[in-house]
C-alpha cells in the first residue's frame, strides 16, 4: 500500500506515456494532454509546499533569533507583498506587481549573474595555466572566443573567422557528443525510475 501501489503507478504511467508517443491516434493524444495536465496540477500544489517551507524556515529563524534573523522579515515581506499584490491588483504590465518584478527582481538577478564575471575572471587567472596540451587548447579556445567581439585592428577579421569556425566545427562536435551522452544518461535514469530500480525520490520508510 505504501510502496507497491506508488511503484505500480510509476510503472503504468511511465510505460503508457512512453508508448503513446508512438501511437498517432487522436484519442491517444487527448489522454496525453490530460496526463500532462496532471503533472502541471500536481506541480501547482507542490509550489504551495515550497512556499510553506520557506515561510516555516523564515519564521523559525525569527522565533529562535538565529544569526541574522532580522533579514527574514525582508524575505517574508517580499513574499507576502508579491502574493497580495498579485492576487488583489493583478499581474498586468504597469501594475505594482510587475513594478516589483522589473525594479527589484530583475536588477538583483542581473547583478548577481554579472557578479560572476568578476569571480570567473579571478578564478580563471588563478587556475588557467598552459601546462599540458589539453589545457593549452582550452585556454587558447577561450581566449579566441572572448576576443571575438573586441576590435583588434588588423587581426579582427582573422580572429572572427577563427572564432566562428571554432564555434561551428569542433565546438559543435563536442556539444553534440555531450548532448548524446546526456540523452543516454537521461533515458537510463528514466528507465530506472519507471522500472522501480531508482526509488530515492519517494523518501525513506
Amino acid at each position: 500500500m505504501r510502496w507497491q501501489i506508488p511503484l505500480l503507478i510509476v510503472l503504468i504511467g511511465g510505460v503508457f506515456m512512453a508508448v503513446q508517443y508512438f501511437v498517432p491516434l487522436e484519442f491517444s493524444e487527448r489522454i496525453y494532454e490530460y496526463c500532462v495536465d496532471w503533472v502541471i496540477i500536481v506541480g501547482v500544489f507542490a509550489m504551495g509546499l515550497g512556499l510553506w517551507s520557506l515561510f516555516r524556515v523564515s519564521v523559525g529563524k525569527i522565533q529562535t533569533k538565529a544569526q541574522g534573523w532580522g533579514y527574514n522579515f525582508i524575505t517574508l515581506g517580499g513574499l507576502f507583498g508579491m502574493i497580495l499584490l498579485g492576487l488583489f491588483s493583478g499581474i498586468e504590465e504597469g501594475k505594482q506587481f510587475m513594478n516589483l518584478f522589473w525594479y527589484i527582481y530583475t536588477p538583483i538577478q542581473s547583478s548577481m549573474f554579472a557578479l560572476l564575471a568578476f569571480y570567473v575572471a579571478s578564478a580563471a587567472y588563478r587556475a588557467f595555466r598552459a601546462r599540458t596540451l589539453v589545457s593549452t587548447i582550452l585556454l587558447l579556445t577561450a581566449v579566441v572566443i572572448m576576443l571575438r567581439l573586441i576590435p583588434l585592428g588588423p587581426v579582427s577579421g582573422l580572429n572572427q573567422t577563427v572564432a566562428s569556425w571554432i564555434l561551428t566545427v569542433p565546438n559543435m562536435a563536442a556539444k553534440r557528443a555531450i548532448a548524446m551522452g546526456i540523452g543516454l544518461g537521461g533515458i537510463a535514469t528514466a528507465l530506472k525510475v519507471v522500472l522501480g530500480i531508482e526509488r530515492s525520490y519517494m523518501g525513506k520508510e
Binding site: 505504501r2 510502496w3 501501489i5 506508488p6 511503484l7 503507478i9 510509476v10 510503472l11 503504468i12 504511467g13 511511465g14 510505460v15 503508457f16 506515456m17 512512453a18 508517443y21 508512438f22 496525453y32 496526463c35 500532462v36 496532471w38 503533472v39 500536481v42 506541480g43 500544489f45 507542490a46 540523452g183 537521461g186 533515458i187 528514466a190 528507465l191 525510475v193 519507471v194 525520490y201 519517494m202 523518501g203
Partner: peptide
C-alpha cells in the same frame, strides 16, 4: 507518494521518447 508517483511516472514516460 501517490502524487509523486503520478508525477514521476508521467514525467519519465514523456521524457524517454522526447529525450531520445
Amino acid at each position: 507518494r501517490y502524487p509523486i508517483a503520478a508525477y514521476m511516472g508521467i514525467g519519465m514516460g514523456v521524457a524517454i521518447p522526447v529525450t531520445m
